[in-house]
Write a protein that binds this DNA or RNA. Sequence first.
RNA 1: GCCCCGGUCGUCUAGUUGGACAAGGAUCUCGGCCUUUCGAGCCGAGGAUCCCGGGUUCGAAUCCCGGCCGGGGCGCCA
Length: 512
Amino acid sequence: MNQLSLEEQRRLLEERGEIVFEKREGRVGLPPLPNVTGPVRTRMAPNPDFVLHLGSARAAILSHDYARMYNGQFILRFEDTDPRTKPPQLEYYKVIEEDLLWLGCRWDEKYYQSDRMELYYDIARQLIALGGAYVCLCPPEQFRSYIRAEKPCPDRNLPPEVHNERFDKMLSGEYGEGEAVLRIKTDLHYPNPAVRDWAGLRIIDTEKHPHPRTGSRYVVWPLYNFACAIDDHVMRITHIIRGKEHVTNEEKQRFLYQWMGWEYPTTIHHGRLGIEGVIMSKSKMLKGLKEGLYKSWDDPRLVTLAALRRRGFTPDAIRDLIYEVGIKPSDAMISWSKFCAINKKHVEPSAYRIFFVNNPLPLHIKWEHPMLQITIPFHPEHTKLGSRSFTIPAGNELSVFVDLNDLSLGDVVRLMGFINVKIVSISETRAEAVFHSKDVSEAKKQGARIIQWVPVHDHLSATVVMPDASERKGVIEPSVVKLGVSTVVQLVRFGFARIDSTAPVVLYYAHS
RNA sequence: GCCCCGGUCGUCUAGUUGGACAAGGAUCUCGGCCUUUCGAGCCGAGGAUCCCGGGUUCGAAUCCCGGCCGGGGCGCCA
């Protein structure tokens, strides 16, 4: 038996019906969600201080798709509670919604934390009454030294009435920024000092830093853990899917849940997503934008969803990528080749093939010919995409633009879909050729390069904006105008790109 | 420094109640076929001492211990 090859052994076993060897495939779709007992409710909770990017897409797609997978609800919640250091901006609320819709993440409910201040104040009162929270007047430095020593600060053990009064004063504006903070009581001996008696609400001078939605109406603002903890409970979130930078926050929030007698949702903390050679940090992107390094948030060098969309990446490609990376807690560094290959799969079947010549040089071809109509399909296989025609007037010479780099003296080249010509001269400004033959088989026989071309009498100037924001100038066939803005094309032998504007003609390059 | 969490081809990932794993898929690289592309598709090849060292076991990528490396947190940011 063991003398047989592996294949033969398998075949024999399969014939006897003992074991069936299946070809193993990679995982398809998402793995099951843990702790599903009823309707699944998930949420996406962005701060509208910037647009969404590839990293944010991980939490968005996972949260949304799991909600759909279990016939639950997906909730959009704007976490806009810091008008001072992470000021929300009205336009970003809008763009985030557009980004989400584009990704195919339609929400069932939408909330703004800035609308829910009374709720946070109410829970704060309840916590004070429970002895679970106190208003701390210590300067931050001093508080930290108490906490590091696992000792209560002098305010901690004051009776609830005192804290109630102090909270009144916070609300009525009697304290300035930094003078008072409401803290949640935790175990003072908790191993991670960061968790001990964390801050829940603080004061922000909204006269100086007005909130874009509520102006100067509120001076007491919840911090992330306070607002988030309350909302996740009140909104009956069952599964929180977020980055692992939030694991300590779960530990903090669990103390609030304990005081309130609430049950903490199931959490999944996924690793961070990186893409080679690209900054994924929101603050760094914002900085570059402010310094004028980027013209706008959809600059091709950025991996914001807006920038990817502009280059012709599809939501399906992003979804595939996120599914592949999955929900594991380890970080992932994605290579561009991977991401581009995924996008190519989605875009290739519907990408119109058109001719763009990058370093255009007029090529004058000696050829006695009648008027000709050249028709070339937009896609070699998918005929439903139709075709376009070039009309060549009769004459004994004909001029087309070709890429200088495709020419060398004495070579035969094939103008794709048209004729074969032999190059007889090349200079800085022009090249000359003579008609050689018509058939593609002849071109093959000659080992001719098959190149794209644009008629001189029927061309448009075009700019292709590359991923590094540099620009490639050239000429393009006029059908680009009919195809229209936002169509994804394959510039033959150059790469995939999305039409960004048609007058002037500008395309954004996606990948080869 | 303190507290967490990770580590499977270059990259991403499957596999983790120990046994069908001589570790699967994708990307990548290289060849071939096909093709009016340097695209797509198809076929083949290359590439992983499953981070290292011990232990448990008939058997470990999988369980236990130690180490190394990497990441995150330690705002009155989210």
